[in-house]
Amino acid sequence: MLRSMYSGIAGMKGFQTQLDVVGNNIANVNTVGYKKSRTTFQDMMSQTTSGASEPTNIRGGINAIQVGLGSQLGSIDNIHTQGNRQTTNRVLDMALEGDGMFIFANGVNAPTDPTVLNHPIDLGAVNLEYSRAGNMYLDSNGYIVNANGQYLVGDNNAAGNAGLIRIPENAASFSIQGNGTVNYIDPNGQTQVAGQIRLAKFSNPGGLEKIGGNMFRASVNDGMMSNDVAGLPDLIVPESDGTASIVSGALEMSNVDLAEEFTDMITAQRGFQANTRIITTSDEILQELVNLKR
């Protein structure tokens, strides 16, 4: 069987995967905090017909003769560049300008008593997820949560410990500062601090795993800044240690560039068509070999 036929099959599989990735990027062009993906390819092992030979006194060296056997998927990279900022003028919409991610907790037994404002949590006893999507909300108990109902992790006792951030039900208004401090106006007109939003930072954010719902999960290759043996994230204050500043009243949108995606889509489509042509041509050659008997 012709090697070109199998090379064509390998090429078609690769370009099909690239089209899948491009399609997902385009589908999420307006998704808050979405980070685009990129496909790379590698050549497969080559079949060596003749090995290389070194030069001698009477003859020069000869290069190896190899026939490639197609391509394969090299990687699908998550590109964590800054997305465009969209102004919303909504206090609970927060955009991150710089490095870092919001921290969210699942499995928290949050108190419903309205008089309990400070609620510390044990990061090792909850499931942590991370996101750049800053569209936050208040639940019926006054806690700041995301669109999935996961609690935003911060520091609510000024001691550097993890905790939930809660706005009292009798607060006249509240605001969020660039360093993550959440202030509210009490019934007496005095400014009080409800807590401070903390961020997680990763030296290799591309190593995070997408799990849907605008969320990421930590992996062994994300380079999380952590001083804990259990691999728990450091609660970094925004605008410190090179982390992002929080912009209230705005959202970070997707970093997908439609012009780039359309170009990649056309390239992948033409590459897929060319590989199908290779299979067709190889089949015609095989048909000619069969017809030699007639």
Rank of each mutant, 00 (worst) to 15 (best):
S254E: 02
T243M: 03
G271T: 09
N214T: 04
K210G: 09
G213I: 01
F272C: 01
M253C: 10
F272H: 04
G271E: 04
T243Y: 02
G271H: 07
T276I: 05
S240A: 14
V237D: 01
G213C: 06
A250Y: 01
N275S: 12
D228L: 06
K210M: 09
P238N: 07
D228M: 10
M224D: 01
M225D: 10
A268E: 03
M225L: 15
Q273I: 12
D222P: 01
S254M: 08
I246A: 04
N214W: 00
P238M: 01
Q269L: 15
E260P: 00
S226H: 03
N255T: 06
L235P: 05
I236P: 00
L251S: 02
M253G: 04
E261S: 11
V220Y: 13
Q269G: 12
R270P: 03
G212H: 02
A250H: 05
A268F: 03
G249M: 02
S254C: 07
E261V: 08
A230K: 15
I236T: 03
V237A: 10
F216Y: 12
M265N: 09
A230L: 15
M225H: 11
D241L: 15
G231F: 12
V220K: 15
N227V: 13
G231W: 10
M224E: 00
F272A: 01
T276P: 01
R270Q: 13
N227M: 14
D234H: 01
I266M: 14
D234L: 06
M225A: 14
S248W: 02
V256I: 13
G212V: 07
V237S: 00
I211P: 08
S240C: 12
S219C: 05
S219F: 08
A218V: 09
M224Q: 05
G223S: 11
I211H: 09
R277P: 02
G249T: 06
S248M: 09
V229H: 14
A268L: 04
V229A: 14
M215P: 04
D222C: 10
S245H: 06
S245T: 10
A274E: 13
P233Y: 00
A259N: 14
K210T: 12
S219Y: 04
A218D: 15
I246H: 03
D228V: 03
A244M: 07
M253H: 06
I278Q: 11
N227W: 12
A268M: 10
I266C: 13
N227Q: 15
M253S: 11
S248Q: 11
M215Y: 00
G249C: 10
P238Y: 05
L251W: 05
Q269K: 14
V229K: 14
A230G: 13
N214G: 06
D264V: 11
E209F: 02
L232D: 06
G213K: 04
A218N: 14
A250T: 10
T276Y: 01
F262M: 15
M265G: 09
V237L: 09
M224N: 00
T267F: 08
L251Y: 02
D264A: 14
M224F: 08
A259W: 07
P238T: 00
S219V: 06
V256S: 02
P233V: 03
G212A: 07
